[in-house]
Computed example of a mutant assay.
Amino acid sequence: MVSEKGCAIGIIRGMKTDTFDFYLPDDLIAQFPLANRTDSRMLYVGGTAQHIKDATFRDLPDYMRRGDLLVLNNTRVIKARLSGFKPTGGKVEIMVERLLDVHRAQALIRASHAPAVGSTLSLSDGITAVVEARQQDIYTLRFLHPLPLLELLDRYGRVPLPPYIERTVTNSDESRYQTIFAQESGAVAAPTAGLHFDQAMLDTLRAMGVAIAYITLHVGAGTFQPVRAENIEDHVMHAERYSIPPDTIEAIRACKAGGGRVLAVGTTCLRALEACARAHEGQLIAGQGETNLFITPGYRFQVVDRLLTNFHLPRSTLLMLVSAFAGMDAIQRAYQHAVAARYRFFSYGDAMLLEIQS
């Protein structure tokens, strides 16, 4: 189960956040995707001693075998950024965080002074939005337009590139900051481990006898927030919605029964599967849920055997998650190696393939 602060049972108490800090040169933060999705490098961390090996993403089939299962997140990134003005004329930047219904959303707002509840914001092409409520930094907005909000964002919004990509959004980002299997609209950040796959790679894996299944977890903007508490147990984890279909539950059961390995593509897949298992006393049950599960060293994994992921931000919950999965020493060595070998970091960066620590 998950505690009120979103900390998983098994957390090592008193662990300091600065344990998960590291030096990263700015020029290693990937600002653009590579020419082809599968061009990325891949750092393998596994084996009994969690040894480190340089590889490429195109080598992934060499690390798979018949009977394994690949679990992908089919969430689709929405054009969540909008610009506008307050009634006073001051500029606002809106980042839609979660769709509530066809005309309402929760959002983050950047402005010189916070807009008041009840005020009306003027956006693109005559669109207006009323501030209905505010809870801490999250605003509830009602958009006054006949178009459904999702269609409105698709027409007038901008791709919500992460804050560490310091450039203007280009037309190519609309396709490259989206996986090729994206279907279910609702994320404000891409499940970036999935960005490495093209159709040829998926076809190759299927031909080998690797099964492929999908979950949906709508990634929220909280994924980019560093942990600011001195002790990680004091961090309040953001919540995200997930859905796991019956076919995926059955695929996991078949994989486990046949001696295969479940490879979660991205921390989002891992988090959805582990949250589902915790919510049902170790069982996987198809359906929808919401999780604030905070996976840190000391956590006992119940579903996932292997993890494909990108390199994560210092002091982030995702760095803590991969440290729990592969082991703190292994991840510290892997990140030191990645910096020295000049791997590309974060959303448009390179990949890691991790085996669970034994």
Rank of each mutant, 00 (worst) to 15 (best):
L195A: 04
I331D: 00
I356M: 14
L69I: 01
C269W: 10
R253E: 15
T291A: 00
V130R: 14
Y156I: 02
T223R: 07
L149Y: 04
K16M: 12
R315K: 15
S172Q: 14
H235A: 00
F345C: 12
S40P: 01
T267N: 07
E290H: 05
T75N: 07
T317R: 04
S124Q: 12
A111I: 05
G84F: 07
G10C: 03
T56C: 12
P160Y: 08
G259D: 01
G47A: 10
C7F: 05
T268G: 13
P297M: 10
R81G: 05
F197S: 12
N171T: 13
F85K: 15
A8M: 04
H337C: 03
A257W: 12
I212M: 11
R58S: 14
Q357P: 04
C276Q: 10
R98F: 11
D329I: 00
N73W: 05
G10T: 05
H51R: 13
E355A: 06
R300V: 12
A187H: 01
G126T: 10
I212F: 00
R344S: 09
A221V: 10
P226K: 01
H103I: 00
M42P: 07
T248D: 00
A30Y: 04
I252N: 01
D137H: 13
T120E: 15
D27V: 06
G186E: 07
N74P: 05
A80E: 06
L195P: 06
Q283M: 12
A341M: 12
R241T: 13
V45Q: 02
Y63K: 08
F22I: 11
E274V: 01
H238C: 04
R76Q: 14
D68K: 02
A338H: 05
Y242I: 04
V210C: 02
T309E: 03
R158M: 13
L150D: 15
A30D: 10
R66F: 02
I285S: 02
D329L: 00
D198Y: 02
F22A: 02
G67E: 06
I12S: 14
K79E: 12
L100H: 00
P246S: 09
M320A: 11
A326I: 02
G282Q: 11
R110A: 13
S124N: 11
L307I: 04
G126I: 13
G84T: 13
Y23R: 14
F197C: 07
R158P: 04
L82G: 13
A211V: 00
A264N: 06
P160K: 04
M237T: 07
G84M: 09
E240K: 08
S40C: 15
R41D: 06
T192I: 03
Y177L: 01
L293I: 07
V262I: 15
A211N: 10
E184I: 01
Y299F: 15
K79Q: 13
R134M: 13
E184N: 15
R228D: 10
R66V: 09
A324W: 00
G209V: 09
S185Y: 03
H113D: 07
A133N: 14
D21Q: 06
G349K: 07
V322R: 02
I78T: 01
F20A: 02
A35Q: 14
I212D: 00
L353C: 03
E250L: 07
A55G: 00
G259R: 02
G14L: 03
R142V: 03
F85N: 11
L195R: 10
Q178F: 09
L308A: 08
V262E: 08
